[in-house]
Write a protein that binds this DNA or RNA. Sequence first.
DNA 1: AATCTAATTAGATAAGTATCGAATTAGATT
DNA 2: AATCTAATTCGATACTTATCTAATTAGATT
Lengths: 184, 184
Amino acid sequence: MSDEMVTFFKALADANRLKIVGLLAQQPYSVEELAALLNLKASTVSHHLAKLAQVGLVSAKTQSYYNVYQLDEKALQSKSRNLFSQENLAASVIDVDSNAYDNKVVKDYVRKDGSLKTIPAQRKKLEAILRYIVKSFEINKRYSEKKVNEILSKYHEDTASLRRELVGYGLMKREGGGGDYWRE
Amino acid sequence: MSDEMVTFFKALADANRLKIVGLLAQQPYSVEELAALLNLKASTVSHHLAKLAQVGLVSAKTQSYYNVYQLDEKALQSKSRNLFSQENLAASVIDVDSNAYDNKVVKDYVRKDGSLKTIPAQRKKLEAILRYIVKSFEINKRYSEKKVNEILSKYHEDTASLRRELVGYGLMKREGGGGDYWRE
DNA sequence: AATCTAATTAGATAAGTATCGAATTAGATT
DNA sequence: AATCTAATTCGATACTTATCTAATTAGATT
């Protein structure tokens, strides 16, 4: 689907092909006529028409010697209506790895032994690191503060900061007065 | 105007730029984040964003360290609605020489001395030649058949055919029974 | 059947552009 | 003020593609 959109836009991303579309919007033309009108060789026009035909914008009818091309106005209008639909926008993104940013940050901040070089000062990067760290806790299991610190110490000596940020960003919960921690 | 359309389509005629548009349709992103998500270098993403910004599809806001880009959805929708309007289609054609085809045919069939190599057998070319020949007659002036033949003989010895075709294609009129000819 | 004609395909070239790494710039944080 | 970071710009490279000429194909006309 995304490929289809790229092909569609590429088909129209050329001044001469836009002129062809404009001309065919007035009336059908043969390759030879288009070549004369655009001051191009017939082979070049053939090339352009093939690209337009590939996305269904034009089609050819053979008339005696000529290949007379015509615009498919229905296709044109329907394409233009749906071009930027929610559906198409989402489709263009399907093969994007949504974890790529977190992965990159983790790669930048975590040593081979698993410890953090530093605790990121910037919010976006800190969040990525916290999302990574929180995976060390089982979901719904309760941990004492001492146990939490023990786990966090693998990452950085400043366990208090890590603990506070995990709670601050809502990645871990804490019960009322000095109680246990858990990951939901 | 046509240039503007080409630029617009070119801006979207790239898979990674379409992905950027798709991503920004969900939420704003910084250059760095987009680079990680698309597995590209920041400089490449900058280049793509510049092209999208050039046609008004995205804009940037500075937030602390980051340049956060966002999609201009209004621009997107309004562009897509008007893309193939009558107006835009006509605009793409303004600088096309509408006489180019006739000129080419005339060039192919008329010798330097003004005479025809042959009378074209094909309809489209015959018409082009006839449109050229008929300019030798003044508008609204009446010509006897003898005078008509005399003028046509400059072009081809078969004046009878030329005369018949001029009338047949409606380029010259003839009064009822054997009367005069004229060009309207 | 033989001959034309327009269209397409193939091959070559030149122009355009996506991408990267390096250098620079702009702006915040310390 | 000095330092750090993200973004942009610059220069180089590799890939894409618009265009042409020449060769081939498909179809009509004679």
